[in-house]
């Protein structure tokens, strides 16, 4: 780790102005990615602005339309929230399947979504549930948010304040864990939204979370496991590594999608 200045922000606006004040300042949420990359000397911020004390970034609100998670919602908080479990059970379950207990106690929804790791779980929920990302400057639809590997629509200095997830009719998330890291090697979130439309969001398999239009169409016609069982996703463009070649990932997308539909119907 290189030396840096530690600052605490009292609100989202305070964080934004502190961020603007230094060229090499970075935000600190749960630190589960940030601290590790600083320890490895891969990141060397001049200033680290801790969001833990920004009250307006905390909190979970649930109403008839949906769930809004403050950016600083810890994975463990979301997992054990009775309100979230009731309103959008898939969200609680997804959060409860991230990393291990220590990671869930520290890691935050906002940090995860801002970081946009290709193997992270939350992006599948944001995209699959058609959520809206609220920031210090605007609101961004899920379809417009995830641009590429570790790349989002966030502008420099823009901070995620919360994310609103509309209530779905039914949804389920199936995660095939990378055997070593336990991140998503392939994670598929299938949701039938309130208006009856279907979303299938895939994380872990490609450079960035993506939707599978063919599956969505088939499920809109018939929301059954059989509807997706024979839909194959092309292997081109998918990730290949020692844990899974692209063809295996492509195959797993179909298997996980089918199982997600089964689970959503259960």
């Amino acid at each position: 780790m290189y030396a840096f200045r530690y600052q605490t922000a009292s609100s989202a606006a305070d964080a934004a102005s502190r961020l603007a004040a230094h060229e090499d300042a970075k935000l600190l949420a749960g630190g589960q990615t940030m601290i590790a990359s600083m320890k490895l000397r891969l990141a060397s911020p001049s200033d680290l602005i801790d969001l833990a004390g920004a009250a307006d970034l905390h909190g979970i609100t649930v109403d008839a339309k949906g769930v809004t998670l403050g950016a600083m919602s810890r994975h463990a908080e979301v997992a054990r929230s009775a309100d979230v479990q009731k309103a959008i059970p898939v969200l609680a379950k997804l959060a409860g399947g991230i990393g291990d207990r220590m990671v869930r106690n520290m890691g935050t929804m906002g940090g995860s979504v801002a970081n946009n790791d290709p193997a992270a779980d939350y992006p599948a929920a944001v995209l699959g549930l058609n959520a809206t990302v609220n920031t210090t400057t605007c609101s961004i639809a899920a379809d417009d948010f995830f641009l590429g590997m570790y790349e989002t629509a966030l502008q420099p200095g823009e901070i995620i304040t919360s994310i609103s997830f509309p209530i779905a009719k039914r949804a389920a998330y199936m995660k095939f864990k990378n055997p070593a890291s336990r991140y998503a090697m392939v994670g598929v979130l299938v949701a039938q939204l309130a208006d009856g439309s279907v979303r299938v969001a895939v994380t872990g398999a490609g450079p960035v979370v993506f939707r599978v239009a063919a599956m969505e169409k088939a499920l809109e016609a018939s929301f059954t496991p059989a509807a997706v069982a024979s839909i194959k996703v092309p292997a081109e463009g998918l990730n290949s590594d020692i844990h899974a070649q692209a063809d295996y990932r492509a195959h797993l997308i179909t298997v996980m999608a089918k199982r997600a539909v089964e689970a959503a119907l259960a």
């Binding site: 990378n178 055997p179 070593a180 890291s181 991140y183 590594d241 020692i242 844990h243």
Partner: peptide, 11 residues
């Protein structure tokens, strides 16, 4: 070493 961290070396 491709498997130089616990992200890739599966304990």
């Amino acid at each position: 070493l491709t498997t130089g961290t616990f992200l890739d070396y599966c304990m």
